[in-house]
């Protein structure tokens, strides 16, 4: 069945597609990694953040004819505000839980995910949307018979740029250092006049903005509907855990690995089992390294 298709070109094409998709997975997951690294909270509504970003991009296109690529900064800005507001209105209170803090955070964000899906269905209807014509959509570059779709290619570049920017931000700016300090010792930073809540709100905003970028890129080649986040949520959690919680670079590496593993699994197993490859690699990695590849926590 698949034996005939294993030509060198097919393998290279699969790896190339897997790499591009993997960089995008990394970009989707990095916001999750950032928020977790900052305050030890897993956002179970992360997939729904992605869904909101995709809708935002879609509506900017539908009503104002702004191309998804152009609107990406707008979407990121919108998601920044959204993320910060969610933190201030809801997550802040989940952080204060005196008992079962972990469970409270999991189920608060999980409940939030359900509400967001319901609201999306209520306001946007359950119709499947997509952006039919965009600058990137449907365009592709062919090098020696290997096809590189432009949306994913740009997504990969944005992903690399975002990771580089994030690295610079955390390690070279005052605010980044404040985030690092808050993460290491939230109690002590209060003494030097850093408002913990502001830093956390900023962290949530930044995390959401990053998934906003991913959503804007994806809007140009993916379909959009209220449940779309579910397809990506588990992959994002596995990506972060594989790379190691608390490591932004881990999410980057994790994304690439997930993309490549997914592509190669589909070459050797029936494609309906390709996620099994991703999950198996995750289990294998954490059995050997219980804190993921680059995890510190």
């Amino acid at each position: 069945m698949w034996g005939t298709t294993l030509t060198a070109q097919a393998i290279i094409q699969s790896l190339a597609s897997g790499l591009l998709m993997g960089l995008l997975y990394g970009l989707i997951a990095v916001g999750l990694a950032l928020i977790f690294g900052l305050m030890d909270v897993t956002n179970f509504a992360h997939g729904e953040f992605l869904m909101i970003a995709m809708y935002l991009s879609f509506f900017l296109f539908a009503f104002f004819a702004i191309d998804p690529l152009l609107s990406a900064p707008l979407v990121a800005a919108g998601l920044f505000i959204f993320g910060a507001v969610i933190y201030l209105l809801i997550v802040r209170f989940a952080m204060r839980a005196k008992a079962n803090a972990g469970m409270v955070q999991i189920f608060t964000t999980f409940g939030l995910a359900i509400v967001m899906r319901g609201l999306a269905q209520f306001f946007f209807t359950p119709d499947y949307r997509s952006i039919p014509q965009s600058w990137l959509g449907g365009k592709t570059i062919s090098i020696a018979g290997i096809f590189l779709p432009e949306p994913q290619l740009v997504g990969a570049l944005v992903s690399i740029a975002a990771f580089a920017g994030l690295y610079f931000f955390i390690h070279r700016t005052d605010f980044g250092r404040a985030i690092e300090a808050t993460r290491e010792d939230p109690g002590a930073v209060a003494l030097v006049g850093i408002d913990k809540n502001r830093v956390f709100a900023f962290g949530w905003g930044l995390g959401a903005a990053l998934v906003g970028l991913a959503g804007a890129i994806m809007a140009s080649f993916f379909y959009i509907y209220p449940d779309v986040g579910a397809s990506f949520a588990l992959i994002a959690y596995v990506t972060v855990a594989l790379g190691g919680f608390g490591s932004v670079f881990g999410a980057f590496a994790g994304g690439i690995i997930v993309g490549l593993v997914e592509a190669t699994t589909a070459l050797v197993l029936p494609p309906s089992l390709k996620s099994v490859g991703i999950y198996a690699v995750y289990l294998l990695v954490v059995f050997i390294r219980p804190r993921g590849l680059f995890g510190s926590i």
Binding site: I90, A94, V104
Partner: peptide, 21 residues
Amino acid sequence: GRGVDLIVYGTLIVLISLALP
């Protein structure tokens, strides 16, 4: 068909989780 059940259900989970850890 408007997702109201999801909104009600999710809101309750959030509220109970937050109010009664």
